[in-house]
Write a protein that binds this DNA or RNA. Sequence first.
DNA 1: TACGCCCATCCGTCACAGTTGACAAGATCG
DNA 2: CGATCTTGTCAACTGTGACGGATGGGCGTA
Lengths: 151, 151
Amino acid sequence: MTSTDPRSGPAGRPLLRRFDRRLQGLISAMHPDERTRPGYARLAKEMREATGGSISGTYLWELATGKKRNVTLEQLDVLAQYFGVPPEYFLSDEVAGRIDAQLRLAISLRDTRVRNLALRADGLSPEVLDALLAMVNEARKFQRLSPVEDT
Amino acid sequence: MTSTDPRSGPAGRPLLRRFDRRLQGLISAMHPDERTRPGYARLAKEMREATGGSISGTYLWELATGKKRNVTLEQLDVLAQYFGVPPEYFLSDEVAGRIDAQLRLAISLRDTRVRNLALRADGLSPEVLDALLAMVNEARKFQRLSPVEDT
DNA sequence: TACGCCCATCCGTCACAGTTGACAAGATCG
DNA sequence: CGATCTTGTCAACTGTGACGGATGGGCGTA
């Protein structure tokens, strides 16, 4: 951003992607219930414990709200690891779209047991579903599951 | 690198990839002749003019020699754009390997005669192609060029 | 009412990503 | 030989990525 490019606003940037949207999407996807959702401080703490890396609650908030966007590889790795997505998720629209679809369907429905779980989960009360979701999320973190990737 | 991770040395970190190797690989792939190859300052200037982004010669050298490695997305984008590879090239070993093959091809095709050779080779019978390949390999040996592995 | 907890948001600070400018060592040319 | 250019390398500087620590507000419990 020195000589030939006087651009710095949130619009007109062909280089950097919508980091904030991606982040918020992942967060609200992981914690669908607004009441249960932890704040950025707690979230950051979880990330630190789960990934072993470092990220602060304040900075996480700044990223999610779009105040900062030019992340370094270190923090990018923490986020990608915690959410179980490849780092490219934050870079490429193409990859992001592909992952998003997978995130909802392909991953879960691949395993028969998962499919059955989904079938039987349908109709349960929101509270019970939230509890189940939390348990699954914890299990994933505990097992350090690798990113869900496909061709 | 604050609380749970007292590590900061250049070795033993499973988080960041070998940025320097990737960079040097790309550079020497793009400029195979040592004598003709421009210095980091010239290279950086080319990058700036080609991509419209910003990167300094010194910093490019620091990255290539491994003195700095925790790049931000902005510079990562400049490098990826200039070399014509997706940014994931610097992050994922898997992607890097896949790209490397294509890269060699792309570099070769910059030479008009090579491109024409490829064009006219298309459609030839396997026997003829094998013969041509053997001839090319012999020529390489004769000119003391390094052998090429096939895809 | 008051106390306690967590929240989002802000602010001051520090480390370091990234730059500028200089240097000596080698080419290349007259 | 010296003049000029480019190379790799370094130190000093600047901007900002990333952080810790306040602030005040919302909500629950007593």
